[in-house]
Design a protein around this nucleic acid. Sequence first.
DNA 1: GGAGCGATGTCCT
DNA 2: GGACATCGCTCCG
Length: 222
Amino acid sequence: MPETMLDTTPKLLPSGFFLPSPDLVAQQLLGKLLVRRNGPGNENVALIGRIVETEAYFGQDDPAAHSAAGHTARTSVLFGPPGRAYVYFIYGMHSCLNVSCEPDGRAGSVLIRALEPLAGLAAMARNRGLPAGAAPRTLASGPGKLCQALGITRAAHNGMDLTSTASDLQIAGDGYQPEEIVATTRIGITKAADRPLRYLIAGNQYISVPYKPVPGKQLPVI
DNA sequence: GGAGCGATGTCCT
DNA sequence: GGACATCGCTCCG
């Protein structure tokens, strides 16, 4: 192997990765890999998607965050240690995946909103109830879709340590770095709706809701 | 292609 | 009882 070749073997992110504030973690998660092992229909292969869209939710002073209602049974994972999966059920039919941030006792989190499917696309389509040849951008371009594609449920994954080799849901890095990150407003919320806490990889085709650059009004590029 | 809307479980008031 | 960090289907242009 030439010396200049990068080692692209995915490496599990350590729990310290999730210690900073949610807006920083949300940006740093872009380009990382969400890995699902031993799921339904993929006992022998991993389902892998690259994270291309995230949203930050603050534990304090963020009315849109679930933790704004305080520490309850439902939100206890958010107040726990960093790097844990917070999976909740929304609108009676969809699951959404967050990763807890900040030290134990603080409730920041990052919502994973879209993946670029890299491996196990046939199993993802099957999990989504789509034909085997379904367009890759329909598989995981939304928080509910990606949970369905990877077989992520509250019952199986809420509270799971995403930094443990023993977990069947993990987050890893393969050295990929996005060239450009764009910040926009968060999707589907009514409170604190104007804060630019949604982050996406500029130009990526696998995001959930497209963003339209408005002439004269520059979107924050990070 | 875009707006409108129904489905439907769980939690908090 | 109402709100909800969604999705996919209709209907209309």
